[in-house]
Simulated scan of single mutants.
Amino acid sequence: MLLRKNDINAVIGCGLAYDICVTHTLKDASKHGFLTCIVKSGSKGLSSLKMDEANKMFQKRGVAIIDDEMTQLISRREDFPIEWIRLLVFQAHNELHGKK
């Protein structure tokens, strides 16, 4: 995968069609084990109901829903979403116990 070959381990998403394109992109990124989040203020959806469904799916998958301030903190490597910390702990636990 191109992202892994370039040592990219996090995907920060935003854009139009929050409830379609952005949701599917972030769902795939999280499925492949990337630290994943969506910048809510930088995204717009077509359907409030579908956006709510997307947010529930994000929570289930550990995709962080972040604001502009957290985006700045992440870019400066000063803070990270709790969802990322949970995922890293889970991944480390699985590696320690020989699980994938």
Rank of each mutant, 00 (worst) to 15 (best):
M1Y: 08
L2T: 03
L3P: 00
L3Q: 01
R4E: 15
R4W: 02
N6P: 10
D7L: 15
D7N: 04
D7V: 08
D7K: 06
I8S: 07
N9T: 11
N9G: 15
A10R: 06
I12Y: 01
I12V: 03
C14H: 07
G15M: 01
G15W: 00
G15Q: 00
G15C: 05
L16V: 10
A17H: 12
A17S: 08
A17W: 05
Y18P: 02
Y18R: 01
I20M: 08
I20C: 14
V22T: 15
T23N: 07
T23I: 06
L26W: 00
L26P: 07
L26V: 01
K27F: 11
D28R: 01
D28W: 04
S30P: 12
S30C: 10
S30F: 07
K31V: 08
K31L: 12
H32Y: 11
G33S: 02
G33D: 02
F34D: 13
F34P: 09
F34G: 06
L35K: 11
T36G: 08
C37T: 10
C37R: 02
C37E: 02
I38P: 15
I38M: 14
V39F: 00
K40A: 13
K40D: 14
K40F: 10
S41I: 11
S41F: 05
S41K: 09
S41P: 09
G42Y: 01
G42S: 04
K44I: 03
S47H: 05
S48R: 12
K50W: 08
K50F: 12
D52P: 02
D52S: 15
E53S: 04
A54H: 01
N55P: 04
K56G: 08
K56D: 12
K56T: 06
M57H: 05
Q59R: 07
R61F: 09
G62R: 03
G62V: 03
V63E: 10
V63Q: 08
I66N: 13
I66S: 05
D68M: 05
E69V: 06
E69F: 08
E69Y: 02
M70L: 09
M70Q: 05
T71C: 06
Q72Y: 07
Q72T: 12
Q72E: 14
L73W: 03
L73C: 02
S75M: 09
S75W: 15
R76S: 03
R77Y: 04
R77S: 13
R77C: 08
R77G: 12
E78H: 04
F80L: 13
P81V: 00
P81A: 12
I82E: 08
E83V: 00
E83R: 03
E83S: 13
W84G: 00
I85Y: 09
V89I: 08
V89N: 05
V89E: 09
V89G: 09
F90W: 09
Q91V: 11
Q91N: 07
Q91P: 06
A92C: 01
A92P: 00
H93F: 14
H93I: 12
N94C: 12
N94V: 05
E95R: 13
E95T: 15
H97S: 11
H97G: 02
H97E: 13
G98Q: 15
K99M: 12
K99G: 04
K100G: 04
